[in-house]
């Protein structure tokens, strides 16, 4: 509905694409590596944003799908010598199917119950992978996954080549997500975020929408997982932990839940911060812990909220209440939808 906003977005989008392509040519290899990670986590954060920002369903178990897809592709490639494309497809299928299974268990919940159940499912999936040593390598993870030997005008084994490949895949996924968000289905998700009871009496099968959103979100998280495992060449239980699920949620919050590009900005910021800071301090985990606390205390509406605030101040409008509830749903949602 925000057509003027879309029109304004075109030059920005063009500049982004140019900048993204410039990275390949101009940036030192270290930063190209970071850029790949930024792409992977941007896609993961945007997939979570579909649930958190649009449907108002705060999942704390998103790493399960990311990790399951990464493990599945990694195991197939490493243990069974499956080539890139079928292994990648199978990885995405496994992550999405896991989403389809867990979706049945969570689609009827809402608010803090949804959070708790997704958290528990994610954690148990993590524990399962950690102990299934013969398949997953347990604590040691799975090292030695090699990048695909493909040639798309550039060898993928080279990080710059892989970056271009990741950019292409992430670009396609983001375009698909943009379509979903603008579609009647995407609008219905926002309606569910605002008032599930009204949606139900208007005639929307709310359970089905929540379920579909969950599966779609798991699908894109799986794509990110496969992109990750082939980039990193290594997957371990660390990629499935609550720390990842929470960090992706933090990326969404830092960027601004419900804003389309915000989570990608949050993801990029966090990836760069993590890698640049870890090179100067051993205590990255503490920094991250403090960051969680600081974000909640000082800027709960994220970068997108910050942008809105600045715009309003520029426009000379008085201090208006920024829509913080947009980002931080309340326990008031707990009157679940249907049981």
């Amino acid at each position: 509905m925000s057509r003027p906003a879309t029109r304004r977005a075109w030059p920005v989008l063009g500049a982004l694409v140019v900048a993204a392509l410039l990275v390949v040519v101009a940036a030192p290899t270290y930063y190209v590596n970071l850029a790949v990670l930024a792409l992977v986590y941007s896609l993961l954060a945007m997939s979570l944003n579909l649930l958190m920002g649009y449907a108002g369903l705060t999942s704390f178990g998103h790493a399960a799908f990311f990790g399951a897809a990464a493990y599945a592709a990694g195991i197939l490639s490493l243990r069974y010598g499956v080539p890139f494309w079928p292994a990648a497809a199978a990885g995405i299928a496994v992550g999405t199917l896991l989403g389809a299974a867990y979706g049945i268990l969570v689609a009827g919940s809402r608010g803090v119950y949804f959070l708790l159940i997704t958290l528990a499912l994610g954690q148990v999936t993590w524990g399962l992978t950690l102990r299934w040593v013969s398949m997953t390598g347990g604590d040691n993870g799975l090292p030695g996954i090699t990048r695909p030997d493909l040639w798309l005008g550039w060898p993928l084994a080279d990080v710059r080549g892989y970056y271009l490949f990741a950019l292409l895949i992430a670009g396609i996924c983001v375009a698909l997500l943009a379509l979903v968000v603008a579609s009647p289905f995407g609008h219905a998700l926002r309606g569910i975020r605002e008032s599930p009871s009204r949606m139900r009496t208007l005639g929307y099968p709310v359970w089905g929408y929540a379920y579909a959103a969950f599966v779609v979100s798991a699908f894109f998280a799986s794509v990110a997982g496969v992109l990750y495992v082939y980039y990193n060449g290594f997957v371990s239980h660390q990629n499935m932990q609550i720390a990842v699920s929470a960090q992706v949620a933090l990326m969404v919050i830092i960027g601004g839940a419900g804003s389309f590009w915000g989570p990608a900005a949050g993801a990029t910021l966090l990836v760069f911060m993590q890698n640049l800071l870890s090179s100067v301090t051993q205590r990255w985990m503490s920094v991250l812990g403090l960051l969680y606390i600081v974000v909640v205390l000082y800027q709960p509406s994220g970068l997108a909220g910050l942008v809105t605030q600045i715009r309003r101040r520029r426009a000379g409008r008085p201090e208006e209440r920024v829509a913080t509830p947009a980002v931080l749903p309340t326990a008031g949602d707990r009157n679940g939808w249907g049981r």
């Binding site: 379509l179 979903v180 603008a182 579609s183 009647p184 289905f185 219905a188 929307y204």
Partner: peptide
């Protein structure tokens, strides 16, 4: 709310 198009996820509203 009651039209089949409510399920469309691949075309802008």
């Amino acid at each position: 709310a009651l039209r089949p198009m409510r399920y469309v996820a691949w075309w802008p509203l």
